[in-house]
Simulated assay, not measured.
Amino acid sequence: MSDQREPSVVSGKSFTAVAINCAAKAGEWIKTKLGNYNRLDTKYSSHDLVTEVDKGSEQLIKKLVLTHFPHHSFLGEEGVEPGPEASAQALADKSEAEYLWIVDPIDGTTNFVHGFPFFVVSIALAYKGEVIVGVVYDPMKDELFLAEKGKGAYVSGKRMQVSKEETLSSSLIATGFPADHLYALPLNLKGIQALAPQVRNLRSSGSAALHMAYVAAGRLTGFWEIGLNSWDLAAGSLLVQESGGIVTDTQGKSYHLGVRNVAASNGLMHEPFLKALAVAEATE
């Protein structure tokens, strides 16, 4: 058994080094394009934006990854047709992959388009369906959030730990406003209406990966959102878990790559957090 596992262990550091290098290079390039993109298109809805910078960032990352690991599989947002069905199918098509890189080349494209400085590069590596490396890079703040399975999580080299709030009333919670206006947005708005009076306050930066990183860093107590994709969550899920937090779906089931309705928290207030969403019928 040990002989079979040794290659994965030996190459673990290089996996992480490549993920960091890809995120840094893509982030640096994205930053140079702020306010300087040429083409803006919509995808699933008028609120689901894409530019040539998203596509260029993904190509840059994919080329670097496959240069180092040509036999690995790659799943990037811009290589998938818009819509939840296509996203689920794209992930299913890669379900047999031993090593799968899961990439959101710009999480927070709407922010990028408007020059609102909250967008990140999100890169995860899953081994047989389990995330083993997660990197979220914020180029505007030059903050790198990094986690390796079983080795903890760090921001700019400093060990991260989730916050210590034990109640909803003392919690700062984040969510988003989904592009899917028929299903996801109404549910999220029901959750917002229910939670707003119960928590210290709510925030929305417009980037799920950044929200997850902030939960890991103790800057947010929790985060939930309906209708996300594997590339929004994979890296952030490991960041939260390796910082001592909990990631489940909105019904409390364990996180896996197929989760679309997510709840992440410091763990201490996870149960009342989920209960509040359930009472509001805002979980699925």
Rank of each mutant, 00 (worst) to 15 (best):
K149T: 07
T109F: 08
K164L: 14
G76N: 07
V65F: 02
F74H: 06
S156P: 10
K151D: 09
V135D: 05
G56C: 05
L168Y: 07
E143M: 11
V65I: 14
M160S: 02
A126T: 06
F118Q: 07
D54P: 03
D93H: 05
P70H: 02
W101D: 06
I61P: 05
E81F: 10
S57M: 05
P82Y: 09
H71T: 14
S95L: 06
F119H: 11
F177M: 07
E81G: 06
V131F: 01
T67I: 00
F177V: 07
A179E: 15
G56L: 10
D107I: 12
E58P: 06
T67G: 12
D54G: 04
F145W: 06
Y99E: 15
G150N: 08
P105V: 08
L66W: 03
S45L: 09
D104V: 01
I173E: 08
S156Q: 14
F119W: 14
Y137D: 05
V103I: 12
A88T: 09
E165D: 13
G56S: 12
S169Y: 09
S73A: 13
A126R: 03
S170Q: 11
K149Q: 11
L144V: 06
K158Q: 15
L144W: 05
S45E: 03
K128P: 00
K158C: 07
K141D: 15
D93A: 12
E148G: 04
Q161K: 13
F119L: 05
E98C: 03
Y44Q: 12
V65C: 05
L100V: 12
P117K: 05
K94N: 13
I123M: 04
I173C: 04
I106V: 11
V162S: 04
E143W: 13
S163Q: 06
T109G: 03
E78F: 02
G150Y: 09
T109R: 00
S45P: 04
G150R: 07
I106W: 01
S171D: 03
V103P: 04
V162G: 03
L146K: 02
Y127R: 15
I123F: 01
E165F: 09
T109K: 00
T109A: 05
K149V: 06
